[in-house]
Computed example of a mutant assay.
Amino acid sequence: MNQYYQTIISEKTLYIVPTPIGNYEDITKRALNTLEAVSLIAAEDTRNTKNLLKYFDINTNLCALHDHNEHKKTNKLIIKLQDGHSIALVSDAGTPLINDPGYYLVQRCYAVGIRVIPLPGACAAITALCASGISSNRFCYEGFLPVKTQLRKKKLLSLLEESRTIIFYESTHRLIESLKDIIEIMGHDRYIVLARELTKRWENIYGASAEKLLNWILEDDMRRRGEMVLIIQGNHKSSKNIIGVKALYTLALLQKELSLKTAITLVAKIYGIKKNILYQHTLDKIKDDK
């Protein structure tokens, strides 16, 4: 039996339908057939989805499903599904549920025995990763970094020893501060790729050390505008150096309040590291900074 078949829309089924992240031509034929054939489309923002449907001359009814109404709306959608309707779930752009609403709806569908069918399609994180030139065999997706500085630094610190490639989404308003925090926590030489406005007219992909990337962005305000993905190279240092990374971050914080000798003594006790190793690293860093 041929595993490939024509799109047939089933009753009592929720379809997860990816939409283009920029270029409308990236939508799949199956996605278009599904959006046209379902009873209802649950959209993160009906205004954005209306533009997409109008472009492809699709007239399916829409309803809003977003962060602020998902729990309340889900119960109504479940009733429609149980009554025999088919529903497509879409986000503003890309694959639904990837930093977008829909998790609760999908969870409830499984709880009441509603079938869920996912369609493959566009995803900014994966698109950026493929073009980054950074290892894509093992990676972790972390969504958006926290808005507040201390929480953002805490998140970055928790990923300090991560050897896999790290993927973040970032907003135009926080890009500079996030890069400064990355430099502080992960180091000025950590390699990062900024993928901006993917598949759109102003698409731009640029990779460099964290410090060089920050300076490059500061040269032109246009370089921090639009939808952005940060791809950060994983930590590939030896286990000896990895152990020292957190310790040295703590050392840098303590040095702001204490003498170098006292700071090194405390860090040595906390992390079980020999003091002479910390002293040597400090001397090496002084030489490198000259």
Rank of each mutant, 00 (worst) to 15 (best):
Q233H: 09
T19R: 05
S86T: 06
Y271C: 04
L35D: 03
E36N: 15
T28S: 15
A125E: 03
R152C: 08
T265I: 08
R108T: 12
T282A: 13
A88I: 11
H71I: 15
D92M: 02
L32I: 14
A210H: 00
E184T: 06
M222A: 14
E227V: 03
I277Y: 12
R225Q: 09
K256Y: 04
I231T: 01
G244W: 02
Y169N: 08
V106W: 07
I182Q: 03
A37I: 00
G121C: 08
L258V: 05
T282E: 10
T28P: 09
E203A: 02
L251E: 08
T19H: 07
D288K: 15
D67F: 11
S135H: 05
D92K: 03
I78V: 12
K73T: 11
V106N: 06
E257D: 14
I167M: 12
D284H: 05
V245F: 15
S209M: 05
I41F: 09
S209N: 06
I205Q: 04
L151W: 01
P101K: 01
E36Q: 15
I41W: 06
K274G: 14
G113W: 05
P96K: 03
T199P: 02
V17P: 07
Y55Q: 12
R30I: 07
G133Q: 00
A88Y: 06
D45N: 11
I242E: 12
L175C: 03
K261S: 12
H281N: 11
Y141D: 00
G244Q: 11
T46W: 10
L278K: 01
E184K: 08
V193S: 03
K256C: 08
I185R: 02
S239A: 14
T60Q: 09
D83R: 11
L81Q: 04
T149Q: 09
L53M: 11
D92N: 13
D100N: 10
L159V: 07
A111K: 13
I79A: 15
V147A: 12
Y55I: 07
I16T: 06
N51L: 15
C123P: 02
K154F: 04
I264V: 12
H188P: 14
G272W: 10
G207P: 00
L97V: 14
V106H: 06
Y4H: 15
T265Y: 12
R108S: 14
A195V: 07
L151P: 00
R174Q: 10
K153D: 05
W202V: 01
C109A: 05
L157C: 09
I9T: 03
L251W: 10
K285P: 01
G143S: 00
E161L: 15
T60H: 08
H236S: 13
P101M: 03
D26I: 05
V193D: 01
I87N: 03
R115Q: 13
R138C: 00
A210K: 00
G22K: 06
R223Y: 01
S10D: 14
Y4P: 01
V90P: 05
I87Q: 06
E70W: 05
C130S: 15
I16W: 08
